[in-house]
Design a protein around this nucleic acid. Structure first.
Lengths: 143, 143
DNA sequence: ATCAATATTTTTAATTATTAAATTATTTAT
DNA sequence: ATAAATAATTTAATAATTAAAAATATTGAT
């Protein structure tokens, strides 16, 4: 199903900006708003960052995309939804990669859930990516 | 070991603002900078938010406190470090609670680590806290 | 206790990320 | 093709965080 169809089936109207945002995000997974804005501009030669933010929020609310916020970074968006995957984040260069969950079912088991009704477990694995491991060890610094 | 000792052993000089920040955070776990600033003001009747930010960052760098950033919130700080615990966050009211890890050792096992050298797994369990579960179901909204 | 060196705090200001409101343009349903 | 509803642009504001310079406090040596 293409983006046009997806928007319609969610009852959202189809606009050039919206399609451009979704395409941009699809082509640049794990992007922040400003990067998506740039990519949208490349496609449309016009567009406001406000519209980008507004649509990103609308898409998140409709479950079309996901948002997460690693410390030291702006909000990060991704189109991969509906499965239960997590993220590897490089402390050195900020690279973000998807990583699968152990189960196909969401890993919602906390040993000590304090009576919370848990619906999602969001995991960030912090570490050093392969590329940065091969650089100077001395240059590795935390954010 | 009290805060004064901890600062000294890290080679950091001891100041009223620093002690107040650490005490404030100890008394208000899972606080954001502005809340800590308020608590510091209550103790010192003077102090700048800039000093609070600067010290929070310095403490994080020295491993004296930890920082994390649930989506929709400002940076959250905590004094509980050195163990491997995670967080329960209420989607409705924003309440944050600690929750223990399954193992005493950090749960660093990703099924698909993509050659990252992982040193930390940070988990946020999203859900609804007991108090909010007992409120109107209709009022529950995501951020 | 005092002094110099160093680090921290305050003050003033800037930047970055994000959201809001009003007006104009586009989309959708008819 | 038109009207009503929705979205985009423009202009502006707010919130969170960081920066730089001057003033002050802390530390370690005397």
């Amino acid at each position: 199903m293409d983006f046009q169809q997806q928007l319609k089936s969610l009852g959202m109207s189809v606009t050039p900006v919206r399609l451009a945002v979704l395409e941009a995000l699809n082509e640049n997974p794990h992007s922040e708003a400003s990067r998506i804005f740039q990519a949208v501009q490349d496609k449309l030669h016009t567009a406001s960052i406000q519209a980008v933010y507004k649509n990103l929020n609308a898409f998140v609310e409709h479950g079309l995309i996901k948002e997460f916020r690693p410390k030291g970074m702006s909000a990060i968006y991704e189109t991969r939804v509906g499965d239960n995957h997590h993220h590897l984040v490089c402390r050195s260069c900020g690279l973000i990669e998807d990583t699968d969950c152990i189960d196909t079912a969401p890993c919602l088991t906390s040993t000590d859930p304090k009576d919370f009704k848990i619906d999602e477990a969001e995991i960030i694995f912090w570490g050093i990516c392969p590329t940065c491991q091969n650089k100077h060890h001395s240059e590795i610094g935390e954010t």
